[in-house]
Design a binder for these strands. Structure first.
Lengths: 184, 184
DNA sequence: CAGACTTTTCAGGAATTGTTGAAATTAGAC
DNA sequence: GTCTAATTTCAACAATTCCTGAAAAGTCTG
């Protein structure tokens, strides 16, 4: 591994732990992402100086993250691995998986709990807070879904617009008919 | 702690570990969020069945996350604590802090590395991948900054629009700001 | 500044998470 | 089917993270 690549791989490894992966998983991802050809497990182990079994377990977990894809090399029985090379794809997958792990369980819990009757003033207060949290999470979730359905080019255009989007939105209440009478 | 509140607090605790906090930190946040009045450290320790010193360390870290605010109770020397009660505020703070911890360091690393000359074909390939990653992160970062500058109401309106925003983008649709004019 | 009360620090132990080599399993070639 | 190479599993060990009680450091009051 050249120093150039190493700097990147080691950094991604360090960040891995902040991203719900761990150092090794991060390093594996980083390495596969910046390596043009797919690598087999032994190559990964040798490059990162970790055991073969660690690589096996790492790949297993990375599969559940959909961050790693098998590739076969003709005439070689071993399995080769790589990551999606389109960074937008990586980002999308990462966002989806993180939502599945970090948001969805909480949304379920909130839904369940909100069905129960609060039994005291304290519970009623708690319920209000939970309702607000639920509504916010759901709003964001839906929005992400909608954005995901957009063609990438449109999405990029939107992102580049940034705050200017406000101008399209504001001057004469435009877009969807406001169902609630907000203000005149 | 009522079962109603307990369910919420325990869940947030479990999720805490997936959110860069840990179980205790999560529980503390959850408890303070759904409790109407600020609590002092002893109350937190007693409610969550953890040691007083653990609470002290937890509060220390939660302060660095800006998730916890001091509140003083007249005639009581002890410090009382709460979280912001506006869930949007919590969300905004959380997003900022996570970016600071999870994104910013990587952006720096990418900038630094991209200044270096790649020395081989492999390095040049790696550089391309890094450049793309850099550009994506920067685009998203800028966009988040822009959105943060928007008044909350506008932001909510945007989020609710979802994919329909696309219609506003399309120039052919109707020259200027395409108003559907459903106003009375 | 003494005394009472509160918060913070920190070294050591507990718990959790990560890593490994050896053994078991799987899959392909013959 | 056997033989061989590749992969996966798993129990034990290692490393890291978390939690605690005891002690130190603050802080307010008179």
């Amino acid at each position: 591994m050249s120093p150039y690549v190493q700097r990147f791989v080691m950094h991604i490894g360090e960040m891995g732990s902040r991203w719900g992966l761990n150092r090794t998983l991060g390093q594996m991802c980083g390495l596969l992402y910046v390596t043009p050809e797919p690598l087999n497990a032994d190559e990964i182990a040798a490059t990162l100086n970790i055991s073969r079994s660690n690589v096996s377990m790492g790949l297993k977990e990375l599969k559940t993250w959909r961050l790693v894809q098998p590739a076969s090399v003709p005439g070689d029985r071993r399995e080769y691995w790589t990551t999606p090379k389109d960074v937008w794809e990586v980002f999308r997958v990462l966002a989806e998986e993180r939502r599945r792990r970090e948001i969805d369980p909480t949304l379920s819990m909130l839904r369940d709990t909100l069905l129960d009757e609060p039994a005291s003033a304290q519970d009623r207060y708690a319920r209000e807070r939970m309702q607000e949290m639920h509504d916010l999470v759901e709003l964001l979730n839906n929005w992400v879904d909608e954005m995901n359905g957009l063609p990438p080019k449109t999405l990029i255009r939107l992102l580049k617009l940034g705050r200017k989007i406000k101008q399209l939105l504001d001057p004469r209440r435009s877009g969807k008919a406001p169902t609630k009478a907000t203000r005149h």
